[in-house]
Design a binder for these strands. Structure first.
Lengths: 226, 226
DNA sequence: CGGCCCTTTGACGGACGTCAAATAGCGTGG
DNA sequence: CCACGCTATTTGACGTCCGTCAAAGGGCCG
């Protein structure tokens, strides 16, 4: 068995994204790495939040190719769609071992819509997700492999840093190269070549599921070449 | 001067997306084709709706390359982001001559949040936009040029059909090949080659800013190969 | 020890971009 | 009216980026 989640920080983590008053989870779950949590067509009456671990939302095409739409980090609501509809339009897979909690949709919606304060919070979440969706489309449509991969790494770094989950230029990096490829519209083989090149240029270092940015300035430049 | 918008169907068109009670527009505007309506950094206190014509939302990178995120058709809210924030994160350009109306954000938000009915409508709009964003990412990340272009055309066909703006398999198609390229992450030159191939295969016909799907079954198959 | 997954590396191929030239259309101004 | 300038489209030759295929090695766990 792989390592277990260290603590159950449900209240605090949910607090990160919502600042919700204490709301009791309907259920809690722990799933091992690589397990599918939900399928694209699943119907839900509750809204899950990631408490620990990393997950990915993805769409799979009939030929087996896959597009990862986002990585979910501790504290993230699995899909804002689920607040209003009962289907998320995409599947969710555990990248590491994942612990998550489900809240009743109607309860959650009710407490969100109760105060103008919380509506603002909800809209901020929507705006941030929309911004990420725009960035993803621009990256996939208009950027090279180098840029896409560097931007993926920097985006994750920023989100982890906002949670206090980085140590200087070092961060957890549990993604397989296959995940990176599916998130950037590339193949795992090509991801390997690009990462090797990044290492050769002294930009980053990856050891034991941990990534360090050795040359932040230059790495940022690679991510922002256009 | 190119043709002018035939009528000012503000009320009815806004009705299409929102079913709003009559709400007076703050202002109305007419802009000629190819004109930029808003820039990425513009700050707005009002929410614009397209009354007639086609527009495009896009992000432009510093090297001049551009990613079109969506085409806006009559009745569309220009950006749902503007309901909650004062910046749309993308620019908006007129594809054809465009007539649009702006509503006061606070008025619009207030009437949307007044009834649970309208909140449901708003969330349906968010869900549809999110679904389109997901489709865009999958298309850009995982589909070939043929598929992307066929899917763009079919997506527009469906949206026009929902407005009663198609005649059988024929629809207005005011897009330049440059627009198609910017929307699909391709170059205008490659778009030309793909469209020529579509014509050679008897799939579609384009004349005078009008597009006809000659072989719907086969064209659908091209769009759904995986 | 033996699978399995992950990663790396190289050779090769294909899809799409770049560059260039030719043509057509369209609106403007003389 | 024609001349012109600009934009859009088409087509071909060629180049590049990234995918595909294959082989080999390492780490992990039964």
């Amino acid at each position: 068995m792989p390592e277990r989640p260290k603590s159950r920080e449900t209240g605090r983590e949910i607090g990160r994204e919502f600042g919700l008053p204490t709301l009791l989870p309907l259920s809690e779950h722990t799933v091992p790495a690589r397990r599918v949590i939900f399928r694209q067509r699943d119907v839900h009456e509750s809204v899950p939040f990631i408490c620990s671990g990393w997950a990915a939302t993805a769409v799979t095409l009939s030929d087996g190719s896959r597009q990862i739409l986002s990585f979910l980090l501790p504290g993230d609501m699995v899909s804002a769609s689920l607040l209003f509809g009962s289907t998320a339009h995409c599947s969710v897979e555990a990248v590491t071992d994942v612990h998550y909690c489900c809240f009743d949709r109607d309860d959650l919606k009710a407490s969100l819509l109760s105060g103008p304060d919380l509506i603002e919070k909800l809209s901020r979440i929507w705006l941030e997700r929309k911004l990420r969706a725009v960035e993803l489309a621009v990256d996939l449509g208009r950027r090279t492999a180098d840029e896409r991969i560097a931007r993926l790494i920097l985006g994750l770094r920023d989100r982890l840093a906002a949670r206090g989950m980085t140590q200087g230029q070092t961060m957890d990096f549990p993604l397989r190269q296959h995940h990176v490829g599916d998130a950037t519209g590339l193949t795992a083989v090509h991801v390997s070549k690009v990462l090797s090149e990044f290492r050769r240029r002294g930009l980053i270092e990856i050891n034991d599921r941990s990534l360090t940015i050795l040359n932040p300035g230059e790495f940022q430049r690679v991510a922002t070449m256009r």
